[in-house]
Write a protein that binds this DNA or RNA. Structure first.
Lengths: 130, 130
DNA sequence: CAGTATCCTCCTTGATACTG
DNA sequence: CAGTATCAAGGAGGATACTG
């Protein structure tokens, strides 16, 4: 027996063992940072230029926006297009893969909108006791 | 006009402006860390004791597991039950809210499994050029 | 405009030791 | 068994200055 994943039964969150290289950890490493999901979210509304993204994603620094976009480009989720005009214009757009990512992301967002109230209430109740 | 969110049209990732307190950032702050999603994933397979979780989530330290579980408990996503037996036994279980979170999480996981190959390929292609 | 290059500071995480 | 307490390290992220 090489792995211990032989148990069938109810495995709701997909049954691979939580190894360091499991798929869950790998997306988490990619999109679990402070800005990636936000940038994808803005691009889901339409292509945007660097400065537009910077304005839209409140609080992001130039450095982190660049870094985030480079990561997304490397992952094949975002396409970067340079228009060699006088003041150079750079447009960012989701690729097809990037668009598919929006669906699960949106599901998470809807969960947040639906349940965040309850979560906050739970926090308050919990902190009150303490 | 208080906000600038008046534009209708295609707003795929839900159209709230990306303020520092938008729902997306708030869940990200809660589940975007290294361990929370993993712990929820294990608990989605069934209730578990502290030591079971520690074994199942490879690489987690006692400290981080405790911290993660405390956070989930405070958020009302996990219920902690102490059985005052001889060596004390503590069981963790997802609450109803915790179970609802599994659905979007699982969607994300499926995306990962489906697309991670492509992402890796894109990375290799991208790095080759450089 | 759209970055790059540095420097610097927290903050998260990990390692270790101890306890009810 | 299931934690808590403390210390230390590393890296993510921010501020600032400079550039094609």
């Amino acid at each position: 027996m090489v792995t211990t994943s032989s148990a069938p039964g109810p495995v709701p969150l997909l049954g691979d063992p939580y190894r360091a290289d499991c798929p869950t950890r790998r997306i988490l490493d990619r999109i679990g940072d402070r800005w990636t999901v936000l940038v994808v979210g803005v691009l889901a509304e339409g292509d945007a230029r660097f400065s537009q993204l910077a304005r839209r994603v409140e609080g992001v620094s130039q450095k982190m926006l660049t870094q985030t976009l480079r990561g997304l480009e490397r992952d094949g989720l975002v396409r970067r297009t340079v228009h060699p005009e006088v003041p150079v214009r750079v447009e960012y757009a989701l690729t097809e893969a990037g668009r598919t990512l929006c669906e699960p992301l949106r599901a998470l967002q809807e969960w947040a909108i639906t349940h965040l109230e309850d979560v906050s209430a739970s926090q308050r109740a919990h902190d009150e006791v303490a």
